[in-house]
Simulated assay, not measured.
Amino acid sequence: MLIVSSPDQIKTPTAIALGNFDGIHQGHQIVLQPIIQSFQVQPQNDLQPSVVSFTPHPREFFSGGKLQLLTPIPEKAEELSILGIKQLILLAFDRKMASLSPQEFIEEIIVKQLQAKIISVGADFRFGYQRKGMAEDLKNIAGNFGITVHLNSLHKYEDRDRQAVRVSSSLIRQALSKGEIKQANKMLGRPYSLMGKVVTGQQLGRTIGFPTANLALPPEKFLPRYGVYAVDVFLNQNLEQNIIKGVMNVGCRPTVAGETPTIEVHLLNWSGDLYGRDLKVNLLQFLRPEQKFDSVEALKQQITQDCQAVLNN
């Protein structure tokens, strides 16, 4: 996967999906399909199947704040690569970019810079100065340049009340914040994952018989509800036999006077040195909220129950 942030590095001509695509959820995958298929149907053509996003995110640019992301850029690039996207183009969002009218955006960015021949967007796509351009405007203006534009219906799924709900990154964050992992995974179309390097922690887990791998995550990674989770741990992301069941704690460990959030994973029926290795952890089920125990012994008993619950699943 080529990650491009400089216009002169972009491989053109392109077939592009436009949007932020945080999470690469099922709705996003519908938008990506026309771009992926354009390459699969005619792999001999020279169109580069690409995703085009902005950095910083326009909301970050205007608010000055930082967004917590379901898929930070390296993780997003990996998921896009799995789906068949060849390059992730990160356009610099600045005052000049923000001031472009819909017509100017298409002429200067889509046509000249990206040399796009095919565009795919969601039906609610907005673009240009003050987001005045709508999906239909994109189709009409781009059509004048001979560009094919796919407008894709928004993906919906049945929630627990059997109501049709539109899948969105915001809804996924809400579900994760409540510990509703199965709902979040249903919207994503895959398990929500945490990816990071194993670093040295306080090694308190070893002292109570439950050694843990401490994961260092990108600071912008969105964390689910504090608590204990059943997880699958990938020691080698390409080999299924290297998937190990585990119990993960996300939070501040109040029983041992923790102050800053940590992500600690205990691998079941496995031992070895993980320091410095990159792990991928898939969240499968929320087991219980974080809580403060009266003693370390009570904590050990609860962790034993957590581990047994995962093994019995």
Rank of each mutant, 00 (worst) to 15 (best):
L171G: 15
D137W: 04
R95W: 00
P49S: 00
P219D: 13
S120Q: 06
I82K: 15
D159Q: 03
Y129H: 08
F61N: 04
L91E: 10
E104G: 09
Q29H: 01
G64A: 05
Y157T: 13
G133Q: 08
V199M: 06
I118N: 02
H25P: 08
K117E: 15
R206W: 01
S193V: 08
G246R: 02
Q26E: 12
M97K: 07
G276N: 03
G196C: 04
D8L: 11
V265Y: 00
L239G: 12
T207G: 05
K156L: 14
S177C: 11
L47S: 05
E75L: 10
N152Y: 07
E78P: 02
W270M: 05
Q174D: 15
I172N: 00
G84V: 06
L80N: 02
K112H: 10
L204H: 07
M187R: 02
A142K: 09
N45H: 15
E158Q: 15
L279N: 03
H150K: 03
K112L: 07
A17F: 01
K132W: 00
F39L: 08
S169R: 03
L114T: 02
F105W: 14
N185T: 02
I36V: 11
Q202G: 08
R277K: 15
Q301E: 13
S5F: 15
V281Q: 01
V250Q: 12
G84H: 10
L215E: 01
P34D: 06
A17D: 09
V281S: 04
V296H: 03
L80V: 05
P261L: 06
